[in-house]
Amino acid sequence: MFKKKDLLLFLLVLALAGVLFLLQYINAKNTTVLGIVRIWADGKIYREAALGKEETIVIRQDNGCENVVRLTENGFFMESANCHNQLCIGQGEVTTENYPLRSLGTHVLCLPNRVDVELVVENSTDMDIPDI
């Protein structure tokens, strides 16, 4: 019933499947990044910065809004802002350790200045971390 050529084709298909699976696996691995701080201003990405060294980033918008983000060893906090309510300052530091405990999760938000700073973390294995 089966000829040698059929078997060869079968093996070829199997090998191709293996390669495709591996490619997808590697691709998936690459999409999860650890330790990036993503800064949004008025709905657009303003800047992305890697965690690791201390740094101060000034977010200056054309409308005069200004926020200063301080990157720490494993997170960040809003150092100052020229908004009227200063709630973003009160939201404190986000770190790779404390975000599951924060009601704002990985974000610090400045509503009046439309600034959203986010700690991009690797998908956690802890499924019970709230989404919001």
């Binding site: 405990l101 009601s103 019970d128 919001i132």
Partner: peptide, 23 residues
């Protein structure tokens, strides 16, 4: 989905260091 409820000030959170009242 996990939806957190923020803790009013002065009320103990679900865990030390958190600001969540409930999930």
């Amino acid at each position: 989905w996990g939806v957190s409820v923020q803790c009013p000030d002065g009320v103990p959170p679900i865990q030390f260091g958190s600001d969540m009242l409930e999930v």
